[in-house]
């Protein structure tokens, strides 16, 4: 093994010094809490009084808890919003990458919703989904369709929230836009000279060149979806008939409504493991479809 040079160690030290505020913050405020939450997950604790150590009992109980499975099912179905938002975000980015008048205004308009506060957005969509005079059902009525009760209908509540998720597509749109503008124009010029059409250029140049951003948006989308809370908390409170009982909402109810802190901590650790496995699988498979210029 080659001996590391003095410069190497100096550079490394500089690097660690630069990230030291984060490391110190993480060690003091986060790492301890993470460790404590695991210990709590092995106890029966209502926040008041002393926690009682019960080993893996909470984890065993989770396996038989139908609300756990229901919340996992709801959250898994909600993951459908990820590909939907990937596609819509990309299409919007392509549209907003054209040279048209007032481009910056359009970009701002499409990006604005993604920075609006979650509660405000939820209240707005409550109106949009109102069964009697919400704008969606109003538009459907013009073409002779009687719209569903959306958030009050257990079959439509979750699809409604998936539709609503497209409201926040501005964030991924922006990263796509950055990636699209980073594609060297000579690649397109060469392709045109070779007789490639629009679709071929999109398929063989655009898509491969932006796969790192697709990977980023995919992972972030999945993590955010697993952590969905505000919409369900504000708009449906998990109903109707538990149709929007998202995992984190159930975790919140266990922790802060019913004060089963040990059980809630166990739920949190299971969620962490689920997200970790999903992320690892995506990273492992990404070598097959993500293209890096250097690779």
């Amino acid at each position: 093994m080659a001996k590391k040079s003095k410069t190497y160690w100096k550079r490394a030290l500089e690097g660690y010094l630069f990230i030291s505020p984060w490391i110190v913050g993480f060690a003091i405020f986060t790492a301890g809490a993470i460790g404590a939450s695991f210990v709590i997950s092995l106890t029966n604790w209502s926040m008041i009084g002393n926690p009682r150590f019960i080993g893996v009992e909470n984890y065993k109980r989770i396996v038989n808890d139908k609300f756990f499975w229901q919340s996992l099912k709801v959250t898994s179905i909600y993951l459908l919003n990820v590909p939907l938002n990937l596609i819509i975000g990309l299409l919007l980015a392509i549209l907003l990458n054209q040279k048209i008048k007032g481009l910056s205004i359009y970009r701002s308009i499409y990006y604005l919703p993604s920075v609006t506060a979650g509660v405000a957005v939820s209240l707005l969509w409550l109106w949009i989904f109102n069964p009697r005079f919400g704008i969606i059902n109003l538009l459907l009525s013009y073409i002779g369709i009687k719209g569903p009760a959306w958030l009050s209908d257990e079959h439509w509540a979750l699809p409604a929230l998936i539709i609503m998720s497209t409201w926040g597509v501005g964030g991924s749109m922006l990263t796509y836009l950055g990636a699209l503008q980073g594609i060297p124009t000579q690649l397109y010029e060469a392709a045109i000279l070779d007789g490639a059409g629009i679709w071929d250029r999109f398929k063989y140049i655009t898509i491969p060149m932006i796969t790192p951003v697709i990977l980023l948006n995919l992972i972030m989308g999945i993590i955010n979806s697993f952590q969905t809370f505000t919409q369900a908390f504000v708009m449906t409170n998990g109903g109707p008939n538990y149709a929007t009982l998202f995992y984190v909402l159930y975790l919140y109810q266990q922790a802060f409504r019913w004060f089963n802190m040990g059980y809630a901590a166990a739920l949190a650790w299971i969620l962490f493991l689920i997200i970790l496995v999903c992320t690892i699988v995506i990273f492992k498979t990404s070598a097959r479809w993500v293209y890096y210029e250097r690779s």
């Binding site: 409550l126 109102n130 009697r132 005079f133 009760a149 009050s152 209908d153 109707p240």
Partner: peptide, 9 residues
């Protein structure tokens, strides 16, 4: 009926 969300109306 609960599905109407009449408060909003």
């Amino acid at each position: 009926p609960p599905e109407l969300q009449v408060g909003q109306l």
